[in-house]
């Protein structure tokens, strides 16, 4: 059987990969993808703690993940719409060239 800490380590690794991508990539779409990966890592933690918790009948982890998936879908839709709008204005989707508010 798989112990709980292997799921937590997998989730930490996914979070770190997503964070690394969100901090280093140039393209705004991949930055958004990195944020999605971080959200998914958190969801994996919720499911793992639900499965290994003392009171799985309460379904708290499951319901939280369902709402989290819904909110993440809304976030992805609005975020990609913003990126398309920015692309139309600046003719680029690279975050380091969108700097007109830089002081």
């Amino acid at each position: 059987m798989t112990p709980l800490h292997s799921y937590l380590l997998l989730s930490a690794l996914l979070f770190a990969v997503g964070l690394g991508g969100a901090l280093t990539r140039r393209n705004a779409i991949i930055v958004l993808v990195g944020i999605e990966l971080m959200l998914n890592a958190a969801n994996l933690n919720f499911i793992a703690f639900w499965r290994y918790g003392q009171n799985p009948q309460a379904l708290t982890g499951i319901v939280f993940v369902i709402f989290s998936i819904g909110v993440a879908a809304a976030e992805a839709a609005v975020g990609l719409a913003l990126i398309i709008s920015i692309y139309r204005h600046y003719k680029t989707a690279n975050v380091d060239q969108i700097d007109s508010m830089k002081g």
């Binding site: 059987m1 112990p3 709980l4 800490h5 937590l8 380590l9 930490a12 690794l13 979070f15 770190a16 990969v17 964070l19 690394g20 901090l23 280093t24 499965r51 290994y52 918790g53 003392q54 799985p56």
Partner: peptide, 28 residues
């Protein structure tokens, strides 16, 4: 800098996981 931050975050999370009560916990 970004890669450094990501590696540090993973190191902190992994250390905390491996020193917590979750280590070796089996399905109830």
């Amino acid at each position: 800098v970004g890669f450094g931050i990501a590696i540090v975050v993973f190191a902190v999370l992994a250390t905390m996981t491996l020193s917590s009560r979750a280590l070796g916990m089996e399905k109830p």
